[in-house]
Design a protein around this nucleic acid. Structure first.
Length: 373
DNA sequence: AAGGCGGGGAT
DNA sequence: ATCCCAGCCTT
């Protein structure tokens, strides 16, 4: 698909289906387009509309904004988020007044040098309001182009961004004057991404680019653009000793601060997943002997910032050793720990409650075989 | 290259 | 809950 064919398809679609009634699409000038583009950074159209209307009512032109107190500008931004945008907006207005005689420079590079205006926003302002060639690469265009060419990878990666920018440059009309319709092209690309080429459930049947879209052909448009790689959560490991005697297990209260502060847990070997072997060593050091030591299936509990892999070991004791009895903590009946609400009442971390349940299931049949006297 | 900024909507 | 959004700036 040549750039000319691409542009024609996009513009034809825009003429029939594009949005043309948004507030910033009326009375188009660089000031209004600039304000709208800044507001639309990381913010959806529906949220922006009332803010844009109020903003224009109070600051109808650049000189009003430049002359306004920053606090006044921030008040108009309240609730939109990303408040650095408002500070930059104000700073930019003053800079345009002081350095550019109150007119935005008609040049992509110069625009992109102003506070709060990056490469994409500069392209949007230039193409929509100035008749210049202004490639843009916002989230919508990234999605359309990544799917059209099946560009793998996360756009946050420099190489992926470079490829997408190259495509954006290629397809953007050379001439953005009346004949080139660069303003409509830019509006159309954003509209396409916002209304058809959506992140989930793209409406490919209605897309003017469907026949050329590689992701569509592959049948996996939803896989583009690649997701930001989730930061790998580190894995911590621990061995938990389920010291059990006669249907009771031993729990200690954890220190008031830190993970599970103040909650009750079995004795724990930190940064250890030796499981059964570690448990044997722990017992030997204390000169304890157990009837049976049995590793149980590993359990993973995920916190906000790490995984905790728990290797539980079931240690059956013939009698309660003095060393353990006096070590601070208490013995709890598994049946009581497994009562409804018991975990909340006593203060048991979720994975510990789960372990208590598992252990009861293992141990109950044994008690049934040899009922207590 | 990665993180921060922020509120809201979709899933 | 998690991810993402008409991004840009700083480190």
């Amino acid at each position: 698909m040549t750039p000319e064919q691409f542009q024609q398809a996009v513009l034809n679609w825009f003429d029939r289906h594009g949005r043309k009634d948004l507030p910033w699409q009326q009375d188009i000038n660089p000031y209004r387009v600039w304000v709208s583009e800044i507001m639309l950074q990381q913010t959806q159209v529906a949220a922006v509309i009332p803010y844009f209307e109020r903003f224009m009512a109070s600051f109808p032109a650049l000189e009003h904004l430049a002359a306004a107190p920053l606090d006044d500008v921030l008040a108009h931004w309240s609730g939109l988020g990303y408040y650095a945008r408002a500070r930059n907006l104000h700073k930019c207005a003053q800079k345009v007044v002081s350095d550019h005689c109150g007119e935005f420079p008609r040049d992509i590079e110069a625009l992109a040098g102003l506070p709060g205006i990056g490469r994409s926003t500069a392209g949007a302002i230039a193409s929509i309001s100035m008749g210049l060639k202004g490639p843009i690469l916002d989230g919508n265009v990234k999605r359309v182009l990544a799917r059209l060419h099946a560009v793998d990878g996360w756009p946050g990666q420099a190489a992926v961004a470079k490829k997408l920018w190259q495509l954006a440059e290629t397809y953007t009309p050379q001439s953005c004057d009346k004949n080139g319709r660069g303003n409509h092209y830019t509006q159309a690309m954003m509209d396409l991404g916002a209304t058809l080429c959506t992140r989930t459930r793209p409406r490919c049947d209605e897309c003017p680019l469907a026949d050329s879209c590689i992701a569509r052909t592959q049948g996996n448009p939803q896989d583009y653009p690649g997701r930001k790689p989730r930061k790998e959560k580190p894995v911590r490991t621990t061995t938990m000793l389920l010291l059990e005697h006669d249907g009771e297990i031993f729990l200690q209260q954890r220190p008031p601060s830190g993970i599970w502060g103040g909650l009750w847990c079995p004795p724990q070997l930190e940064e250890d997943d030796g499981g059964e072997a570690s448990a044997q060593e722990w017992l030997a050091v204390r000169d304890l002997s157990a009837q049976q030591v049995q590793g149980l299936p590993q359990l993973r509990h995920t916190f906000t910032h790490f995984h905790l892999d728990i290797a539980p070991v079931w240690v059956q004791l013939a009698k309660i050793p003095a060393q353990v009895a006096e070590s601070g903590g208490g013995w709890y009946k598994l049946r009581q720990l497994n009562r409804p609400r018991a975990a909340q009442e006593l203060g048991l971390p979720a994975p510990i409650a789960k372990l208590a349940k598992q252990l009861l299931a293992l141990q109950a049949p044994l008690l049934a075989e040899s009922p207590a006297p």
